[in-house]
Design a protein around this nucleic acid. Sequence first.
DNA 1: TCGCGTCCTTAACTTTTGTTGGAACCGAAC
DNA 2: GTTCGGTTCCAACAAAAGTTAAGGACGCGA
Lengths: 243, 243
Amino acid sequence: MPGDAIRAALVSRLRISSTISEDDIREIEALPISARQFPAETPVVRDGERATDCCLIADGFCVRSKTIASGKRQILSIHIPGEIPDLMSLFLRVMDHELSTLTPSTLGFISHETLQKLHRRSPNIAEVFWRDTLIDAAMFREWIVNVGQRPAPSRLAHVMIELRERLRIIGRVDGSNFEMPLTQEQIGDALGITAVHANRVIKQLRQEGVVELHRGRVTVLDERKFLELADFDDRYLHQSPTL
Amino acid sequence: MPGDAIRAALVSRLRISSTISEDDIREIEALPISARQFPAETPVVRDGERATDCCLIADGFCVRSKTIASGKRQILSIHIPGEIPDLMSLFLRVMDHELSTLTPSTLGFISHETLQKLHRRSPNIAEVFWRDTLIDAAMFREWIVNVGQRPAPSRLAHVMIELRERLRIIGRVDGSNFEMPLTQEQIGDALGITAVHANRVIKQLRQEGVVELHRGRVTVLDERKFLELADFDDRYLHQSPTL
DNA sequence: TCGCGTCCTTAACTTTTGTTGGAACCGAAC
DNA sequence: GTTCGGTTCCAACAAAAGTTAAGGACGCGA
């Protein structure tokens, strides 16, 4: 993938959530980025590591997660092309969680130094990125609610719809189909349930004719039921500069 | 409470997490703040509201929470004096959650306009505040793990220790005692369990001689058991500028 | 094409958590 | 002091989720 396409995904995403001038866009497009390939299921930045770069997803799916002493793992967020999952490392140098790939991925690295210089030069751009980290936090808040209050089938539906709405922005929803390349084990880690229970829930949603999940691909069978079950309100995604 | 004391709590907290120059501190101390009193259990900023100010806690305890369609409520964080719980509203104008008091509180309001001007004038201060919002997000990540992966007794112990470590910074831990002014209903909302189950868990921890919780006051009975149960690692609080 | 490994699937059983309903306790207001 | 409302506490039962174990599907590489 050429460097231009990588930057384009980022810019198109930022344009949806913030107001950016054409000058600022040129600045962002001029950022030096070094791309690297990662296989599936591979750590990119580890918990406890000191980061020197931020990582822009050019292609592939990634997740952030934390593993506790008992060995249990919690997935905190799912990331798609155009996102910078570890932007927070700019000011929180020592990682408090792990970033890893789900699928084979192309990642672009931008050094903290470069970003900090850019922010000093252009406070507008700094604000756009700051806002991006705040939206990240808003998604964590919703994730807490999901894991803490919703019954398991709703949790799954909610995570699915959140992912779909974000994929839509980058043009990766095909009718009632979209990608969600997680194993049932990983779905369990995302929802705070075991893989066995994740399987039960998936089976139930299939039998009730709500959604079908097969080999990392979601097919919505009944949009109304799906939305109702998920209890989804997209306000927290702040996908409009006026919000 | 005089305005100076309000600012002092904020500054002492920021000094622990970031490196700030004396000039910057003077700038922060010169911020115009208007104080207001709030009774216990009162909303300060509502979900869906458009904020024009940020709110600095001068005295009292507050929580942030979200309520879902079914009526269930999830507490996202507990806040103590010196914190600015809704700093995120600076760039995410429309609130996606609610901020409310737990106890009678004195809150200082700083207008978004004032803060934005300050950030333009001093990028250093902007970075300190940005970092503060990133620490907020780090706490949400840990909260997800807590609710998603830990058994209920550990969840309670973890929330207690997080609160204690933050209270310690502002000098509000008295030996093995500290304040946690939540009802069992609210504890349930924070841990993602029902009030009845919260009561069971509290009883269990008391019977096992770990902690005692009485009328909003926590007394640690066995520090070793307490720490072990909570599975607490303070790295995510980023209470050191080098992290 | 076979064999291996990963993931998916299911069943039986256990544990945790939710639900309902009620009693005891306590502080604030009258 | 008495009453009242909110909290705390508890028991019995129901539902949700975890655990363990095992068979089946599928894709990949030898």
